[in-house]
């Protein structure tokens, strides 16, 4: 056969192709797939008295994940799972609502400055999340104007800060994920066929109707990517709730981290991780159905 101008045979190509392939595949298998499988194995093990792993098969970790503990059923862990889903959902929703005006605004800039505006969105995206998150700690601190304003309005006890709180977590999450929605959405908006919008207006559609009939369907590919890029990592987010949520507003990410540090309960931590992985895979399956033709990167 001739392959890209080269007279060769499939056997020859496979032999050479393997050299290109193997380093990366072995690397990913060895450092992602095998670790992942050992995580699965670990989730069926027991925690020893001193935090060591005891290789006795048990389903107890999964039972605990669903709330069945030593003292009967308690909603704590289930609540954390549901809360993670809820926070991810609300974060995604608000990000989408904020991303539309921003994407349209950037797309409406003249071509010469458009990419500078886009760079303005990308820069915070690349700035370390730990920095952006601790900055919000200060902005929401008791002696900063935001908290002062809330105190004066009587929304907040005197000398209290706006963090740690659910609100702070949402603010942090939106800061973290907004660019993930804006960027893919912008690439859809930029390619928008405006003749459809004009046609809709020609037919005396209202603004709302024009948006939902002529604009929204065209931005679906970008929106889908943005939603996936936000929702999935938001469920596993650890830095933001850790720094802004406080002990009462734990998410799955914190729960996992606790098991590997403070509690030293690796098998349970592994089970929680797999719970998160299942939620992720469900999200991805939805993505596969909706946005097949859109690249992730």
């Amino acid at each position: 056969m001739v392959w890209f101008g080269e007279l060769t045979t499939p056997a020859q190509l496979y032999r050479r192709g393997l050299w290109f392939l193997l380093p990366a595949v072995v690397w990913i298998l060895g450092l992602l797939v095998i670790p992942g499988l050992s995580l699965v194995a670990l989730s069926f093990a027991e925690r020893g008295q001193y935090g060591e792993v005891v290789w006795n098969f048990t389903l107890e970790n999964y039972a605990r994940l669903l709330g069945f503990g030593l003292f009967g059923w308690s909603p704590d862990t289930v609540l954390i799972l549901l809360r993670s889903l809820w926070v991810a959902f609300v974060t995604t929703l608000i990000c989408v609502l904020l991303a539309y005006p921003l994407a349209f605004f950037i797309a409406s800039r003249p071509p010469r400055t458009r990419y500078l505006w886009l760079a303005l969105v990308i820069i915070p995206f690349w700035t370390n999340l730990v920095i952006r998150t601790y900055a919000w700690q200060m902005l929401l601190a008791p002696d900063f104007p935001f908290a002062k304003l809330a105190q004066t309005l009587g929304l907040l006890a005197p000398d209290a800060g706006l963090y740690p709180s659910p609100l702070a977590v949402y603010i942090g999450m939106i800061t973290a994920f907004l660019p993930f929605v804006v960027m893919p959405l912008f690439s859809s908006v930029e390619r928008l066929d405006w003749s459809l919008v004009e046609a809709a207006q020609d037919l005396y559609a209202s603004r709302v109707r024009t948006f939902f009939q002529a604009v929204w369907p065209q931005t679906l590919p970008g929106l889908t990517v943005g939603v996936i890029l936000t929702f999935i990592p938001a469920m596993g987010m650890f830095v933001v709730p850790d720094l802004l949520g406080g002990a009462k507003y734990l998410l799955v990410g914190n729960l996992i981290q606790q098991q590997f540090y403070a509690s030293r309960d690796w098998p349970y931590g592994a089970a929680v991780s797999l719970g998160l992985m299942v939620m992720t895979l469900v999200g991805l399956a939805l993505y596969r159905r909706r946005g097949k033709d859109v690249d992730l990167v």
């Binding site: 992602l32 995580l39 990410g253």
Partner: peptide, 8 residues
């Protein structure tokens, strides 16, 4: 998710 990768 990076946290799963990390604990793995």
């Amino acid at each position: 998710p990076d946290i799963i990768f990390a604990v793995a």
